[in-house]
Design a protein around this nucleic acid. Structure first.
Length: 536
RNA sequence: GGCCCCGUCGUCUAGCGGUUAGGACGCCGCCCUUUCAAGGCGGAGGUCGCCGGUUCAAAUCCGGUCGGGGCUACCA
């Protein structure tokens, strides 16, 4: 049992410049899980200071992704809180106030160097042997009077922190990386306020974190080198320095930083491909953190009772989708039928729409290559692109109107599903009505192969099925077929595989008799007849 | 160039001076079985990047080295 500390305040501070990235989601999860296990507060703050890239729409997308993952925040957009506002664009007064204080105390100075001058200096320094060592402090040497005169003259200027000359080595203890030490020479006087009067990221974050009473800053590894600069800002402002905990990065399968070319990188894309939020959270939590090195299935409540900073590791981790798929399957199998129908509704509707659209009679379709199948599943979008609106509405209504049917389907596919986007391909045969779509390879291997005796098998099964009345039992029926088949010298496999192909169109399908039970018997018989006449 | 970080089976990881280096995914085999799965059982994969040192004893401590990554903006 982890000891609680309700005074803990952490925050997740995304920039609304795009979707919620996998790496960002992991950072959010760690902050959230830490707040929950400590009994502290989880703050959500939107860093929308970049007007070029930040949009209201992106903010909504991120909030939606957070909610989908189940990462509820205690303070932030839409829920408010005592430290608001929670958008950086609405906090400029607080930055200005902090800057005014720094000016009054002489801890910042105006710098009139232009971007061009600085770029030139940097380029020159980099070309020489010593290399670039940061801003050279030209304007720091200006007299107060001269600086004021140039400001009064309207000369453009930024404000820079005057790092104390005798500051010495900058040190702090990172909860993940341990004791960190940076030589003072490596720190130049960073800009806190731009020439247009806006504030830089490093300054805004420090002010926000301090003003919001953040006790632990849990964020990506890429900020580690920025941290000493921020420590200097904390010190200049007389703010207490929080505990830092930097997280290792998440890499793509090729060992490089996860990016678009690795495929899906946003939480939404994974949602649309039929991953469960519970699985995403569990999986992401395990990249860079472990409960005990043994446990891999860690439900939300366990995570929120046991997440500690000291078990975060320092090594970058590769995002391995195969393991995510396995884990998603685990969570699917643990669902109950009702929850499943609700969560999978769009894909179930898709399955229905696909099934209904199948051509009348018997159609032969080529067997797709494995990659092609994968690709097709990935392209399945919700609500189905390319499906006409009317059919889509009808499909949704069908799902809504037949809850018992779809609940009954769950046990047939639960242990065969790894993602929901596999549902249409796996289940559309249930909705074919009297029509059949035959997979070429299955026909060749099961129906027309020499010595298969598929026609006999179908006749036997058809006879048994046709004789059924009322509420029949699948096991009894199956045994009845088996007995007749045995009498004719047909093994179970020889008997049932043809039936499977005739009914489901493929030699691979969910359980046969259980499927038939969910369909209209007249349709099933029609499929058998149509297949027989088309193939033999 | 400078500063900082990382390096245990293919992948996620446990390990914190003495373990046959443990677990999970994936892979292979067997069992179950009308298909595919799921499940059960078993197996192959690490000598802990490399070199040297400390020690009776090192994946675990120290030094060096190689490789990978981050930061070094009037971006966040």
């Amino acid at each position: 049992m982890v000891e609680k500390d309700p005074s803990v305040r952490v925050r997740f501070a995304p920039s609304p410049t795009g979707m919620l990235h996998i790496g960002g989601a992991r950072t959010a999860i760690y902050n959230w899980a830490f707040a929950r296990t400590m009994g502290g507060t989880f703050v959500l703050r939107i860093e929308d200071t970049d007007p070029e890239r930040s949009t209201e729409e992106n903010t909504q997308i991120i909030l939606r992704a957070m909610r989908w993952l189940g990462l509820s925040w205690d303070e932030g957009p839409e829920v408010g809180g005592p430290c608001g506002p929670y958008f950086q664009t609405q906090r400029t007064e607080t930055y200005q106030a902090a800057l005014d204080k720094l000016k009054a105390e002489g801890r910042v100075y105006p710098c009139f160097c232009t971007k061009e001058e600085l770029d030139a200096k940097r380029a020159k320094a980099e070309a020489e042997d010593g290399g670039y060592a940061g801003y050279d402090g030209t304007c720091r040497c200006l007299s107060k009077e001269e600086a004021q005169a140039r400001i009064d003259a309207g000369e453009p200027h930024v404000w820079r922190i005057a790092v104390p000359r005798d500051r010495g080595t900058i040190q702090f203890d990172d909860a993940v990386y341990g004791h960190m030490s940076f030589p003072a020479e490596a720190m130049d006087d960073m800009i806190v306020c731009r020439s247009d009067g806006t504030f830089t990221y490093n300054f805004a974050v420090v002010c926000d974190d301090a003003n919001m009473g953040i006790t632990h800053v849990i964020r990506g590894d890429d900020h580690l080198s920025n941290t000493p600069r921020q420590v200097l800002i904390y010190e200049a402002c007389d703010f207490p320095v929080p505990v830092f905990a930097h997280l290792p990065m998440i890499l793509g399968p090729d060992g490089h930083k996860l990016s678009k070319r690795h495929g899906a990188t946003s939480v939404e894309e994974y949602r649309d491909r039929g991953y469960l939020p519970e699985a995403m959270v569990n999986f992401l939590a395990l990249i860079g953190w472990s409960l005990d090195g043994e446990t891999t299935i860690i439900p939300e409540d366990v995570l929120c009772e046991n997440f500690t900073l000291d078990r975060i590791n320092r090594k970058d981790g590769v995002f391995d989708e195969t393991k995510l798929e396995w884990m998603n399957g685990v969570y699917i199998r643990e669902m109950d039928a009702d929850t499943w129908v609700e969560a999978a509704t769009p894909w179930l509707a898709q399955a229905y729409a696909d099934g209904v659209r199948v051509d009348a009679g018997v159609t032969m379709v080529p067997t797709p290559a494995k990659e092609e199948q994968e690709e097709r599943a990935r392209q399945t979008r919700v609500p189905g692109d390319g499906v006409d609106v009317e059919l889509w509405q009808k499909a949704l209504a069908h799902v809504a109107d037949h809850p018992a049917l779809f609940r009954a389907i769950f046990p047939l596919v639960a242990e065969r599903l790894v993602r929901f986007d596999e549902i249409p391909a796996k289940l559309s045969y249930l909705f074919w009505g009297p029509n059949v779509q035959l997979d070429e390879k299955s026909v060749a291997k099961v129906l027309t192969k020499d010595g298969a005796r598929a026609d006999e098998a179908l006749a036997i099964c058809r006879e048994v099925l046709a004789g059924l009345t009322g509420d029949w039992d699948e096991d009894v029926t199956m045994e009845a077929c088996k007995a007749k088949g045995e009498a004719a010298g047909l093994k179970p496999k020889q008997l049932f595989q043809p039936l499977r192909v005739a009914v489901a169109g493929n030699m691979v399908s969910p359980p046969l008799f259980e499927s038939i039970k969910l369909m209209d018997m007249a349709d099933v018989l029609a499929r058998i007849d149509a297949t027989v006449s088309a193939v033999f």
